[in-house]
Amino acid sequence: MKVALLLLATLAAVSAQSEPWCRCAAFVTYEYTEMMVYEAPEVTIDSCQDDVKQCKNRCSKELAELTNDGDLWSLTAEGITVGQHICSNLLRHLIYFLHNHKIYGYYEVCGGAWQYAGVMSQQMLCCNGGKHEHCIS
């Protein structure tokens, strides 16, 4: 009976596991914290252990394509700037003002720690009342 229960529990644990996956997102860095400002659609990878590099490369490529290599003034498919998209997202989190911050790309493999993807914005981001503006040093 105990063996049957152990087998059943193992089967349930294995069936609960999903396919390996990779998350990709952009973050703004503050002195003591990071805040996600954009998350790309999840990507399926072949293995949680062996495909960290695959996840990083896909994430870097996706963020570069979505932002025209980190250009915050590039227009999105919706006709707004990448920076305005981020400022609007920050506004939804009740962050009205942000001045002189770079945006960094990170990736996460199968629920592990977020790791830097080697991607950052070309310009500093400045949001004034939720509106993307040119930064003044």
Rank of each mutant, 00 (worst) to 15 (best):
G105E: 01
G129I: 03
P41F: 02
V3D: 07
A12S: 15
E133P: 01
E31Q: 15
S60V: 03
Y32W: 12
I95F: 11
H101N: 14
E133K: 05
K102H: 13
K56H: 00
C55N: 02
A113C: 09
I95T: 14
G105I: 00
Q49K: 10
G118R: 07
S47D: 12
L66D: 06
V82N: 08
Q115V: 12
H99C: 08
S121A: 02
D46Q: 08
K61W: 03
G70P: 07
H132A: 09
Y107M: 11
K2N: 03
V82I: 15
Y30V: 00
M35K: 09
V52D: 02
T81P: 00
C135V: 01
M1W: 04
R92Y: 05
I86Y: 08
L72P: 03
L11D: 09
V14C: 15
H99M: 12
K53C: 07
G70W: 04
L7H: 10
K2D: 11
Y106N: 06
G130H: 07
K131G: 02
H132Q: 11
Y107A: 09
A12G: 11
S15Q: 12
I80D: 11
M1V: 07
C59I: 04
C48H: 04
E65N: 09
A4Y: 14
H101P: 06
G129L: 05
W114Q: 12
N128Y: 07
G112F: 08
G111N: 11
G111E: 12
D50N: 10
Y106C: 01
E42D: 12
I136V: 11
T44Q: 15
F97E: 14
S60I: 00
G105Q: 01
A26H: 06
Y30P: 02
A16S: 13
N89G: 08
I136G: 10
A9N: 06
A13Y: 07
V14M: 14
L90P: 05
